[in-house]
Amino acid sequence: MSVENKVVVITGASSGIGEATAKLLAKNGAKVVLGARRENRLQEISQDIKDAGGQATYRVTDVTNPDDLKALVTLAKKEYGAIDVIYNNAGIMPTSPISALKTDEWNMMIDVNLKGVLNGVAAVMPDFTTQKHGQIITTSSVAGIKSFIGSGVYGATKFAVRNLMEVIRMESAKEQTNIRTATIYPAAINTELLQHITDENSKEGMDKLYKSVGITPDAIDAIARVVNFAIDQPEDVNVNEFTVYPTKQG
């Protein structure tokens, strides 16, 4: 099944992996619907896609608000007549030791990284169940399959996403709704995530790691190609997990 003409909703689309994915999918003929909080960036990216001959629309979206996700899906159906894929890519990473008790940041990570994904799932599930096809793709993290000091709560949200996506896949197979899932586990990739870290020691350690082994901005396109690959498979094929490390990272 080709990416061409698929209607794809992308959250966290205003920079980094989301932006790169939107541009690649649009280049390959998908109709992309962009959601994020920064309207100026959404405008710019949408216009870039249109200038390159692609199809794109956008809506300012806060993934912690269920109504925003529903409105984004409604926009996709209004503009393009359908919804085929949602890519839950929005996330934050204010890592810190548990003992630092940055409880406000814990709650923000739960709201964005876990509840934000659940809100995306809830927004598309009625359509996907009725039409008996659809695809849910989510950015987890290598911290969702391995434990790291300083990433207890961040990792907990990403472990939860891993379980959620696998259960959706299993339940869909049982219910015969043909919903495909794909979970992506990026390791050290140089995006805006590091800007969320307020704990000085954690920030110093993460900056050192990412400077040493982090994937270059050009390689962010590699994640976009993974998403493209997952969507591009035949409808009866579900490639559901992808771990992406920098070659230098142990």
Rank of each mutant, 00 (worst) to 15 (best):
V3R: 01
E4N: 11
V7N: 07
I10W: 05
T11V: 11
S15K: 03
G18L: 00
E19M: 11
L25G: 08
G29N: 09
K31T: 12
L42M: 11
Q47Y: 02
I49K: 09
A52Q: 12
G53K: 12
G53H: 11
G53W: 10
V63R: 13
P66C: 13
D67Q: 15
D67K: 14
V73L: 12
V73Q: 11
K77D: 06
I86M: 03
M93Q: 12
A100G: 05
E105Y: 06
W106L: 00
D111R: 10
N113W: 03
K115W: 06
G120V: 04
G120T: 05
V121N: 01
P126N: 11
D127M: 06
Q131D: 08
G134I: 00
I136P: 05
S141H: 10
A143D: 05
F148C: 01
S151A: 15
Y154A: 10
T157W: 03
K158D: 04
F159E: 00
N178S: 13
A187G: 15
A188Q: 10
E192N: 14
L194K: 06
Q195R: 10
I197S: 06
S202V: 11
K203M: 07
G214T: 12
P217H: 07
D221G: 05
I223E: 01
V226F: 08
I231H: 09
Q233K: 14
V239L: 15
V244Q: 00
T247C: 02
Q249W: 06
